[in-house]
Amino acid sequence: MSQSEKKLLETLKGRIYEHPPVWMMRQAGRHLPEYLELRSRAKDFLDFCYSPSLATEATLQPIRRYGMDGAILFADILLILDAMGRNVRFVAGEGPKVDPAERASDLDKFPIETLLDRMSPVYETVSRVKTQLPSETTLIGFAGAPWTVAVYAIEGKGGTDKSKARLKAYQEPDDLDAMLDILVETTAHYLKAQADAGADALMVFDSWAEGLSENSMERLVVKPTEKLIERVRELGVTQPIIGFPRGSGAMLGRYAEQTGVTGVGLDTALPVNYANEVVPKGMPVQGNLDPLLLIAGGNEMDSRIRQIKAAFKNRPHIFNLGHGVTPQTPIANVERAVRVIRGD
């Protein structure tokens, strides 16, 4: 491999490596002392996300410390709702809160040009990171999937059983479909803006895909994601797109086959052999390692890393977690994990 070759990007194009490229969801975050110092400079989390100088530094910190093969933009999936006027705020100990959207029209109060302009600090961050990243590091932009963002909009917060959003899907299907369509269009333009600013790859997070019936999964996750990918491609975006339908379970294969994503993220609960069976041959996969193993460390962590590597040795594979790095994760364990992944 040449020094300037983007190993992660090449994997998304179908290349197989003996030692896969690695990055970790939430690799920039509260387990890093340098992040905590940086975070203290912003008045709140939204200010942090909207400050290109701070967000750029947060994106680069795990690259400097660990030499990850991928840098993911430091932002948040709820910035779209904030641009839509839903008063997003992050409450200590409670997580994100938004003013609930009762109707689709609550998400359609501003022209799309206005929404995109409000999120312009994000594109500035992408541009700044791009100029400072090592040439071999892949820059990943991202957005929340339509269903997951809709859940936040309807519920007004995260961490719920999604019953309010799921009931709306049953009781007011036309209005929910209208919500999803608004989010598809806005998100497509948002991802295009990140791609235009320099993102090498894109990722779509469907964090609340779990717990849905087969027909609901098809309607609320698979179809809107398919629409989103189609729209992004219509807008001229050629970068590879990773989809992460967390908790999709037995619907993973259908998601991988139908949505048009380039690769799929695997949550911790998915058996690796099952993923190999249902994800189309040759499609890149990413994820699966339990984030708690990064806390535990030791031989248990090493063993599971090697099991995952072995399971995916015959397909394009990006090593990652099944969810994000937790705040209590020891830095030494992340360093050790990266060494084991790379066969050092």
Rank of each mutant, 00 (worst) to 15 (best):
F312R: 01
F319Y: 15
T138H: 01
H323S: 14
D196V: 04
L176R: 10
I182Y: 07
G236F: 01
A42V: 13
G198W: 00
P284R: 14
I308A: 14
M84H: 05
R231W: 00
G287N: 08
L220S: 13
G141F: 00
T114W: 05
Y17C: 12
D196A: 15
Q61C: 06
P96G: 08
T187G: 13
A92K: 13
L116M: 13
G85C: 01
A275E: 05
L228E: 15
G70F: 00
A193R: 07
G298H: 11
D99K: 10
V88D: 02
D177I: 02
I341Y: 05
S53R: 13
G243Q: 05
V279D: 08
E5D: 14
Q27I: 15
D82M: 07
M25K: 09
W147K: 10
L115S: 11
E57I: 01
V340D: 09
L266N: 02
T59M: 01
K164F: 09
V261C: 15
E155I: 10
W147L: 09
G236M: 00
S53D: 12
L36H: 06
L220P: 02
V149N: 05
P291S: 11
Q307S: 03
K6A: 00
D302I: 10
G260C: 12
V338D: 06
G144P: 15
V204P: 11
I295T: 15
E10L: 10
A104E: 10
A310G: 14
M179S: 06
V98W: 14
L54I: 07
F142W: 07
I80R: 06
P121M: 00
Q132G: 06
P33H: 10
R39N: 02
A104W: 09
R231E: 04
M25N: 07
S120A: 09
K309L: 07
V221R: 02
D69V: 08
A209W: 02
D200K: 12
I229G: 14
Y50D: 07
G95Y: 02
G322A: 02
I241P: 12
P316V: 06
D47L: 02
T131G: 11
P96D: 09
K43F: 11
L79W: 13
T160K: 06
G247Q: 14
R336V: 15
D290L: 08
P21Q: 01
R118E: 03
A75V: 03
A275P: 10
I229C: 12
L36N: 09
L176G: 12
L252W: 01
K162F: 08
I331P: 10
A193M: 01
D290P: 04
E230I: 14
K130C: 09
R128K: 11
L191Q: 13
M301G: 15
L32N: 04
S120M: 07
K164H: 10
D117T: 01
T268Y: 00
I318C: 08
T160P: 04
E300Y: 03
